[in-house]
Amino acid sequence: MMSTPTKQMGRAGARSRTLGSLGQLFARYGIVIALGLIVLALSVLSDNFLTSGNLTNVLRQVSINGILAVGMTFVILTGGIDLSIGSVLALTGMVGASLVAGSKPHSPILAILAALAVGVVAGACSGIFIAWVRLPAFVVTLGMLSAVRGLTLIYSQGMPISNLSSGFKFLGQGTFLGIPVSVVLFGATALAAWVVLAYTVYGRRVYAVGGNMRSAHTCGINVRGIIFSVYALMGLLSALAGVTLTARTTAALPQAGVAYELDAIAAVVIGGTSLTGGIGGIPLTVVGVLIIGLLNNGLDLLGISSYYQQVIKGLMIVAAVLIDKARHADAA
C-alpha cells in the first residue's frame, strides 16, 4: 500500500535532485561563469582585448588589488574587516621609498624589509585592539585608516618621494621569465594563501573562528591569537602592495591607496566569501579580483566612461551577495 506513493516520490525526488544540483552548480560557480562571459564579450566587442600586451596589462593592473584582496580574505573569513589597508599601503610605500631615494640609497632589500616590518606593526596594532581589547574591527580599522594616513603625511611632510634607485624599481617594472614582477608577487601570494587556507591546521582554525567563535574556543583554539594573526598578515600584505605600487609608479605619494580597501573588499565579496565569516576562499577571491580588473579594462577599451564603471561595479557587488544568499537558503 505504501510502495506506490513512495516510488512516485522517488522519481520526483530524482528529478528535482538534478534541478537542485544544477542550481547548486550555478550558485557555486556562477561567478566563474560570469568571468567567462565577460572575457567572451570583451573578445567579441574589442579587437585589442585578446592581445598578450593587453592581458599582461590587466594582470599588472590587478596585482595590487589582488595582493590586498588575498589578505582581506583571511580577515573576512574570521568575520572581521580591515578598512585601514589603503593608509598602511601609503605609509609603507613611503617608508620604503625614503630608504632608496636620493644620492645615497640603502639596499632595496633593506627598504623592502623595513616597509614590511612597518606594515606588520600597523596590522598588529589593529589586531591587539580587536582580539584582546575586543573593540569592533570596523571601528578600530576606521581609526587606523585616519591615524596611519596622518602618520604618512607627517613622515613625508606631505611631499611625494621620487628619484628611487633602479634596484627598487625592479619590483614594479621588472619582469621575471617575461612576466611582470608585480604579477608574479600576486600569483605567489595567492598560491601560498590558498595552500595555507585549504591544507593547513592554521587555515582550518581561521575558518573555525569565523564559523563560530564560541565553538572554536570550546575546541581549544586560541581564538584571540588567530584574530590577531590575520590583521598582522593583512598589514604585511598591505606593505607588500605598498612597495610594489611605489616601485611601479616610481614615486611614493602621501595620497596613495585612498579607498583601496573598497576594491579589496569588493573582490572578496564578489568571490562569494561571506562577510559573517567562515565561508569562502582564495580561488574565488582571485576570480573576483579578475572580474573587477577586466571590467575596468574592458570598459576602458570600449570607451565607456569610468563613471559607468563605478555603477557597474556596484551592481556586481550586490549581485554577488544575492547569489551568496541564494546559496545559503539552499543549504539551510
Partner: peptide
C-alpha cells in the same frame, strides 16, 4: 551556539580538535 560549525562539513567538525 558553542559546539558545532553549522556551515562546515561533518568531516571538518569531527577532526577539528585533533588536527
Amino acid at each position: 551556539a558553542s559546539g558545532l560549525f553549522l556551515s562546515q562539513s561533518v568531516r571538518k567538525n569531527i577532526s577539528l580538535t585533533s588536527l
